[in-house]
């Protein structure tokens, strides 16, 4: 039986047979990449086909597409203000990508690319660099006053500034760790319980019930983590736009 961590293994698709991933060319199409493509395709289908009819009174599908739009647009308005609206396309794409990636990872035989820290870290660093550039573009050098906390005595400033900078740099780290750790922990736990079902015979009912509950829990976590990732992006954007 496959171990609980086997589900996170990266495999090449269509590569040479019998050659390990590390020995192949660095541009291999992997199962992770495949599921990203599937995710993007699913989002496109969901949004484009959902909005195709443009009914005045929306049906279920159109409502869902509109609801996701309104959800993100409301989130940006509440957390980043009206100036944040320019970044709607980016934040909406980010949310849908993470959400669909999390949810599709729950399908049997699928692959959860958000359970790999390299994927979440790239997204978090992208957000981090983008937000910093937005702040510098908007405020110029005044942006760096961000790192000087108000109400601190002058002799403390040489200590406080590096601390603030480290604190700022730790944002993408904690952001990416939170998403990847949640997804990975949940999937591992499900697999551990699933591994007990058959060997326990009749008593396998207990881990089976647990797994059913965990599946529901994972759906909630998938949504919550996508939400948290996006809200944090909005909050950081708000910081950069308004500098408090």
């Amino acid at each position: 039986m496959a171990g609980p961590l086997a589900q996170f293994e990266i495999k090449a698709i269509g590569g040479e047979a019998g050659v390990s991933l590390a020995e192949q060319s660095p541009y291999v199409f992997t199962n992770s990449a495949l599921w990203m493509v599937i995710t993007v395709a699913a989002i496109t289908i969901f949004m484009v086909l959902g909005m195709r009819k443009r009914e005045m009174v929306p049906g279920a599908w159109q409502s869902m597409a509109e609801a996701s739009y309104e959800f993100i647009s409301g989130m940006i308005r509440d957390n980043a203000g009206d100036e944040g609206r320019r970044f709607f396309p980016f934040i909406f794409s980010l949310f849908m990508f993470v959400l669909f990636g999390n949810l599709m990872g729950l399908l049997p035989y699928s692959f959860t690319f958000t359970s790999h820290i390299i994927v979440t870290a790239v997204m978090a660093v992208f957000v981090f660099v983008g937000v910093t550039l937005v702040g510098i573009a908007k405020h110029g050098l005044h942006f760096f006053s961000f790192f000087v906390p108000s109400g601190v005595p002058a002799f403390m400033i040489p200590i406080m500034v590096p601390i603030e900078i480290i604190s700022y740099l730790s944002r993408p780290v904690s952001m990416s760790i939170r998403l990847f750790a949640n997804m990975m922990a949940g999937h591992t736990m499900m697999k551990v319980f699933a591994g007990f079902i058959v060997p326990l015979g009749f008593f396998g009912v207990a881990p089976l019930i647990m797994d059913v509950a965990l599946t529901g829990f994972e759906v909630l976590v998938a949504f919550l983590q996508a939400y948290v990732f996006t809200v944090l992006t909005c909050l950081y954007l708000n910081d950069a736009l308004h500098l408090h």
Partner: peptide, 10 residues
């Protein structure tokens, strides 16, 4: 607010 600056969230 998440990190940086001693200010409550807006």
């Amino acid at each position: 607010d998440s990190a940086v600056g001693y200010h409550p969230a807006d």
